[in-house]
Design a protein around this nucleic acid. Structure first.
Lengths: 204, 204
DNA sequence: AGCATTTCTTAACTTAAGTGAACGAGATTG
DNA sequence: CAATCTCGTTCACTTAAGTTAAGAAATGCT
């Protein structure tokens, strides 16, 4: 897998990462160097598949730049269930359960990711309990967010979900193909087209 | 809030708790005693509201026996979004975000809960890094489960969701009122009634 | 540039969920 | 015990999503 090409990018990404971490814990220069020595920055081309159904994996992804999505193949067609963009983290369930993956993860834009390995995490966490604390805090936050998103999904109609998405993640509507957005909203692409037409109709 | 009345119950609950913890970390007798000294077992009556919309709270719940649910009041009616039963944990989002709660938590059966306070957790975690590790592992597991559940919800119809529920949590269908189940499945009570009739129809 | 494939939209039709109302069974209460 | 309330079901009707198909637009490929 390719590493970062431009040193300037590398510097920018380091800063983004350390800024993010500083929201949870404070790091000494030495600790920063330990992190960097792990060499976890990866530059990934659009269209690259990071994980396939049936595969076993220990990799977690943190998006520094770009966008990845998770999707299932059910009855022969793709069902996209999630998008992860800047400052979002994904540890696929198969990494936690240590079973073959149920879904695919792929890169839908040229991206810069931080890819870590769970063995590596265990080692770092045991050496630096701080990281353990940070991971706990981050995961607690992600779980709280996920539950709120799920609740919102359950309590609203496809049209409300779409309007909600426009408010909360307007970028997604621009950067993601409609048919992937549709399954993300729990409907068929045709229904999303119709729903959009209906909204435009209402406005006028 | 009432503590546990019967010593026999208390012993049983201690064992259930320590069995559960032993899946993640091993505890010395001393550590077990520290945990117990926190006096976190609570016996809660059916119908008790544990958290109200608009309230600030630092409490997390772990169900040892019984069932609690989370619900919103939207346009004047209740929307139940989750049930937590034996061995399931809930930290309401408001505890993480430190903002007023968006929803209610109430006890739908006489229950025995473990109720912890986030200040207490911070203290225990800093004294015993082991707990921090356990919380991280548990939360990672919960997040992975939550994401899978959300994915399944998105990719299936109300009927499939109901059939799925019969497979995965048959107890819920028995112990929970239909109208609460309906919103949990993302539909109206009338639709759940109809859907059930449709399934019976198909079988014959 | 030209061809092929994928993606998006539209339309007609089918199916199922939302809505409003009514009814009966149980539980709750004065 | 009667009156009330909640809950689940059923029904008729409305609305929106699923399905199938066709065509237009955009994209990718050589």
């Amino acid at each position: 897998m390719a590493s970062i090409t431009h040193d300037s990018d590398n510097k920018i990404m380091k800063n983004i990462l350390f800024d993010f971490i500083s929201k949870y814990i404070s790091l000494t220069e030495e600790e920063k160097n330990v992190l960097l020595s792990l060499d976890i920055f990866r530059s990934i081309k659009k269209g690259t598949t990071l994980l396939k159904e049936g595969q076993k994996s220990k990799e977690s992804y943190f998006v520094l730049k770009g966008c990845i999505r998770t999707y299932y193949i059910l009855d022969g067609d793709e069902k996209t269930t999630a998008f992860y963009t800047e400052m979002e983290a994904l540890t696929p369930p198969c990494v936690i359960s240590k079973t073959p993956s149920e879904y695919y993860v792929s890169c839908i834009e040229d991206s810069i990711l931080l890819i870590s390995n769970s063995d590596m995490e265990v080692e770092v966490n045991s050496k630096f309990p701080k990281f353990d604390t940070m991971c706990r805090m981050l995961t607690e936050e992600l779980l709280a967010k996920e539950r709120i998103d799920f609740d919102e999904f359950k309590t609203s109609s496809p049209e409300q979900r779409y309007l909600n998405l426009i408010q909360k993640r307007p970028d997604l509507i621009q950067r993601v193909p409609q048919h992937q957005l549709a399954s993300y909203l729990g409907i068929k692409p045709q229904s999303l087209s119709r729903l959009r037409a209906r909204i435009v109709e209402k406005k006028s």
